[in-house]
Design a protein around this nucleic acid. Structure first.
Length: 106
DNA sequence: GTCGTGACTAGCC
DNA sequence: CGGCTAGCCACGA
């Protein structure tokens, strides 16, 4: 049997890496993807404490309501990165975030 | 083992 | 739409 006891952060990172460029996801979606739909809080924590900051596209994660949320390097930086990838943002909210939302494989 | 904290969310007013 | 509250989870001290 397999027991890979990965930490919560590990799982989050795995999912984060799956987000394609030009797309975004929400903390909620990630929580669901790792089979812990109620751990959306911990997801944010994992990203914030993420020791591989530049290696993980954590900037592609937004709030479930399309809000930007936060970013270890500053919300502004997060917005810029997203705009660079083709995500339109206005008033700290993602435009048509529903269409750009990336859903993980069920 | 307990407590506080946070890049959250949904509900209510 | 904006603000507030309660519920939720993992992690470090």
């Amino acid at each position: 049997m397999i027991i890979l006891h990965k930490t919560f952060s590990e799982k989050v990172r795995e999912k984060l890496k799956l987000i394609p460029r030009g797309r975004i996801t929400t903390y909620r979606e990630i929580a669901k993807a790792i089979r812990q739909p109620n751990a959306f809080r911990a997801v944010g924590n994992a990203c914030n404490k993420n020791p591989f900051a530049p290696k993980i596209p954590c900037h592609r994660v937004v709030l479930s309501n399309g809000g930007i949320g936060g970013y270890a390097k500053g919300k502004k930086k997060k917005i810029e990165l997203l705009e660079k990838e083709g995500i339109e943002i206005k008033n700290n909210k993602v435009i048509d975030f529903k269409e750009k939302l990336f859903r993980f494989k069920a």
